[in-house]
């Protein structure tokens, strides 16, 4: 019998728990590897750049996702154009103007609620409100307005976090010279939290690219090339995800995997971009 400190106590529960902890971590990574691996395995062999430049047409006997890529870009740009001013402005109000704590609490709560509402509900609401009530029908505009509400929390929270990290002394210095509040915000606050806002915008882009349920009944699924670049926002347009769903439902797995491959590349790219900004400027990002 010894009482040496060199004697290792054996704890079976420690050992087994550690095992399960490592196993779980491994599983998470394994799942990702399987997902990406499988998409590459099925997507790469059938991938052909002609998919990216063509329209699916029975008459011409071509298969392609160019219209869907264009629609996705339209929706990204339009959604961000709508959501960014509102999200950033709201964050500025909460952080710089609001004095009433109750009011701030209510807005924080509703922002929380917005980020918890499933996309299918956004889809229903968008269809009823923007589509039917506002009369925009199935259109890229309806889809973008719907998605704009959906990504509002991502934009505003990231902006708020960025604003919070700006030292109080910057504000004091600007106001102390006689800058008005809005001038101070424009020239000092916004430039110094640009990286944080940008990270939020990129995360929101990822969310838009990946979205499908909220778009099915709002932007619709039409896949023709835009006839007119300006009126296109008022016509129906299916994004990459919607096209992926339709092809998958029809059993056209080859095209589905080509789209999946494109989507994964976009998601990966956005992820790396966000990381790059975070790393370069040392900003804090907020996820949903």
């Amino acid at each position: 019998m010894t009482n040496s400190i060199f004697e290792k106590r054996k704890r079976i529960s420690d050992k087994s728990m550690s095992f399960f902890i490592y196993l779980s971590s491994l599983l998470s990574v394994f799942i990702l590897v399987v997902i990406i691996g499988y998409i590459l395995y099925r997507g790469l062999p059938v991938f052909n750049f002609s998919y990216l430049m063509n329209t699916t047409s029975i008459i011409n006997d071509t298969v392609g996702i160019l219209p869907n890529i264009i629609n996705t870009l339209y929706i990204i740009v339009l959604t961000l154009l709508i959501a960014c001013p509102i999200g950033i402005g709201g964050a500025i109000y909460l952080n710089e103007y609001a004095k009433n704590k109750k009011f701030v609490d209510v807005i924080s709560f509703t922002t929380e609620v917005l980020s918890g509402i499933p996309s299918i509900i956004y889809g229903l609401f968008g269809m009823l409100f923007f589509g039917t009530f506002c009369g925009f029908g199935f259109s890229i505009l309806t889809g973008s307005l719907t998605l704009a509400i959906m990504i509002l929390p991502i934009i505003s929270r990231n902006t708020q976090t960025a604003l919070e990290t700006v030292p109080k002394s910057y504000r004091e210095a600007a106001l102390g010279i006689g800058a008005t509040k809005w001038y101070m915000i424009r020239t000092v606050l916004l430039p110094s939290c640009m990286p944080g806002i940008l990270t939020g915008v990129i995360l929101a882009m990822g969310r838009i690219v990946a979205e499908s349920a909220a778009l099915l009944f709002t932007a619709g699924s039409v896949h023709v090339l835009p006839a007119n670049i300006f009126t296109h926002v008022l016509s129906s347009g299916g994004t990459l995800t919607i096209e992926l769903y339709l092809q998958m439902a029809k059993g056209n797995y080859d095209v589905a995997f080509v789209i999946a491959l494109v989507l994964i590349v976009i998601v990966l790219g956005l992820n790396m971009l966000a990381k790059l900004i975070t790393k370069k400027f040392d900003v804090h990002e907020v996820k949903n």
């Binding site: 910057y170 004091e172 010279i177 006689g178």
Partner: peptide, 21 residues
């Protein structure tokens, strides 16, 4: 107008606080 007031009455703070410019 507080902006004019502060133009006339400037202030320097405890911690040096240059803008990130």
């Amino acid at each position: 107008d507080t902006t004019v007031l502060r133009k006339k009455v400037g202030m320097v703070f405890q911690q040096p606080n240059p803008f990130p410019m």
